[in-house]
């Protein structure tokens, strides 16, 4: 109903952006997680969002957002020759995650800006509702 569903909409966006933020943190934390095989190496993860419309009211104006799936980057891994690394394979190579720190930082800033915008929307809506409650008073 009216302004109240704005809380749900902005709230869902904040949850989705939080997931994105967590993935950024995971990617940055694992930037140096070397492993001995391609399969065992950490791969950069990204969240894919999707729009959710209420199936009961089927109202297209209330479009919430949720994380649809989390995909792993297909970019090739970097193989480094480090024979003394404890995780090195028999040829002396270790595989480094395909996390691009610059890209990840840009992603982080974007996620945090989106989060902030939704908080602002929520605050404005709250103020409007409080004023509506006081309607008729001086």
């Amino acid at each position: 109903m009216g302004l109240f569903s704005t809380f749900d909409i902005s709230g869902s966006a904040m949850t989705a952006q939080t997931v994105r933020m967590n993935l950024v943190a995971s990617n940055l934390a694992n930037v140096n997680s070397a492993a001995s095989s391609v399969e065992g190496t950490y791969k950069s993860r990204q969240a894919v969002f999707k729009t959710i419309v209420n199936e009961f009211s089927n109202d297209p104006s209330v479009a919430k957002v949720a994380v649809d799936r989390i995909i792993e980057s297909e970019e090739p891994l970097k193989a480094q020759y480090q024979p003394h690394h404890p995780n090195a394979n028999e040829d002396g190579y270790v595989y480094m995650p395909n996390v691009n720190p610059i890209e990840t930082m840009a992603n982080m800033i974007d996620a945090s800006r989106s989060y902030q915008t939704n908080v602002e929307v929520l605050n404005t809506t709250k103020q409007l509702l409080m004023r509506t409650i006081n309607l008729g008073k001086s």
């Binding site: 909409i9 966006a13 479009a63």
Partner: peptide, 12 residues
């Protein structure tokens, strides 16, 4: 305001 909030929420 509901519609505009939906747009902002779905900006990504």
């Amino acid at each position: 305001s509901e519609i505009l909030a939906s747009n902002i929420a779905n900006s990504d």
